[in-house]
Simulated scan of single mutants.
Amino acid sequence: MAKKAATDKAKDESWGKTIRDIAVILLLVLGIHSFIAKPFYIPSDSMMPVLLSGDRLIVSKYPYGWSYASVSFHLAPKFAGRLFGKLPERGDIVVLEHPVTREDYIKRVIGLPGDTIEVKAGALSINGKPVKREVQPMLSIPVDANTPSGDGSLSRNVVPGADGQPVLEVPIVRETLPGGATFDTIDLGASQLDDYGPYKVPADHLFLMGDNRDGSADSRAPLEAKGLGGAVPFDAIAGRAEIISFSTDGTAKWYNPLSWFQALRSGRAGTDLRPERQANIN
């Protein structure tokens, strides 16, 4: 009888240790995700041409300090304030919680607190000064199961390539923001988002836009259109996009490990997502 009791006690202790170990691992993962870095998946074309649907990113949590939005899986109740808060720079790509739905969004910081933002015929101005725009050659991107994504904003730009295979051809405009951040945007021509403002960014808020200017539900778009409805509170920023870890073309099957490798896009892994910065741009 004593032997059976000892065996049962050992089993209980074993189960208890297993549960404790699992809890520690979960807390460790949550802590890393919330305070250091986490992976992020791009599901749409709103940040093309820099980011493609199917890209996997590393998002760092510490550059701007921590707020309720830093906690992964949207577990934290909303509260005001930010620990060790530091404003992003114009041009940074940030992940944020939508201020109403709490869904994850990824956009680029365009306006800082106090800035006046205006868009006329697709041309951006900050504080009354037009942002430098340089038209680039058309960009051709191979079409695959992820590109263009299912939102349809770029489908009409799919054309046959030189080898007969479909490619996505998009017009590129390179912008240089005050402070020197330089990056490429897509400008498809006239759209509902081409005229906006003037709009003054409130204190402790940021004005965010997608690089695919005609296909991004960002600060220009109203809440009812799944946009951000203006500038978002700084507290809603969860982290900064740093690097592409890997990218897939949408053909991978979960039950076929070989397809995981076949679906990898070459040349995407390791892409730095911090914008180039020119000196003496005000």
Rank of each mutant, 00 (worst) to 15 (best):
D163C: 10
A241E: 04
K3T: 10
R220V: 05
G91K: 00
A269N: 05
V50L: 11
P49L: 09
A23G: 12
T101F: 04
G150F: 11
N146F: 05
A241N: 08
A123S: 11
L139K: 14
I36T: 09
H98C: 06
V131C: 13
R20F: 13
N256L: 10
S60Y: 01
D214V: 03
L208P: 02
L208G: 05
D55G: 10
A181K: 00
H205K: 12
G85H: 13
E224W: 14
A145N: 15
D272M: 06
N146G: 12
S245Y: 08
H205W: 04
E97K: 10
D184C: 08
E97C: 08
D104S: 15
M209Q: 05
G128A: 12
G227V: 06
K253Y: 07
Q136E: 14
V201T: 08
S245T: 12
R108Q: 06
I244N: 02
V135A: 14
T18E: 06
L83C: 12
D211K: 01
V143K: 05
L96K: 00
V95Y: 01
A2N: 12
K17M: 10
Q278F: 07
F234Y: 05
S140L: 09
T101D: 08
F35C: 13
R56I: 06
I106R: 01
T116Q: 05
V100W: 14
R20T: 15
R108C: 03
T271V: 14
D214C: 10
F234E: 01
G16C: 07
H98M: 04
I25G: 07
E175F: 00
L57Y: 04
G270V: 07
E175T: 06
G31N: 11
I237E: 00
K3D: 13
S247T: 08
P142W: 03
D194K: 03
P130C: 12
P198S: 11
T7R: 01
D272F: 05
W260Q: 07
T271A: 15
A181F: 00
F40W: 07
L52G: 07
